[in-house]
Simulated assay, not measured.
Amino acid sequence: MKQPIGLILAGGQATRMGGGDKSRNDLGGRSILSHVIERLEPQVSQIVLNANGDAGRFDDTGFSVVPDSIDGFAGPLAGVLAGLDWAAAHGASHVVSVAADTPFFPCDLVPQLILAAEAQDKPIALAASPDPVKGMMRHPTFGLWPVNLREDLRAALLGGLRKVVLWTDTHGTAQAAFPAPVFDPFFNVNTPHDLETARGLMEDL
Rank of each mutant, 00 (worst) to 15 (best):
A55C: 02
K134W: 14
F142E: 06
T61A: 05
G28S: 11
H94T: 05
L109T: 04
I70G: 08
P76F: 05
P130V: 14
F105N: 02
G75I: 06
D54W: 05
R154F: 11
N148P: 02
R57G: 05
E41Q: 10
G29S: 13
A125R: 09
A156M: 12
A88Y: 01
A92Q: 09
S34V: 02
L81W: 09
V36A: 06
N52W: 02
N148L: 10
D54I: 08
L33I: 10
G91M: 01
T102W: 07
G79I: 03
A51T: 03
G28P: 08
A89I: 00
S97Q: 04
D26P: 08
D68A: 07
R138S: 13
F73E: 14
L77D: 05
A117E: 13
A156T: 11
A116V: 08
V98R: 01
L84N: 02
G53S: 08
D131C: 15
E41I: 02
P132N: 11
E118P: 02
M136D: 14
V98W: 01
L157V: 15
I32F: 03
S34Q: 15
P76A: 12
S69D: 12
A74K: 13
S34Y: 00
P132H: 08
A74N: 12
V98D: 02
F104K: 06
T61N: 05
L109K: 05
A128P: 05
P111M: 07
L115I: 11
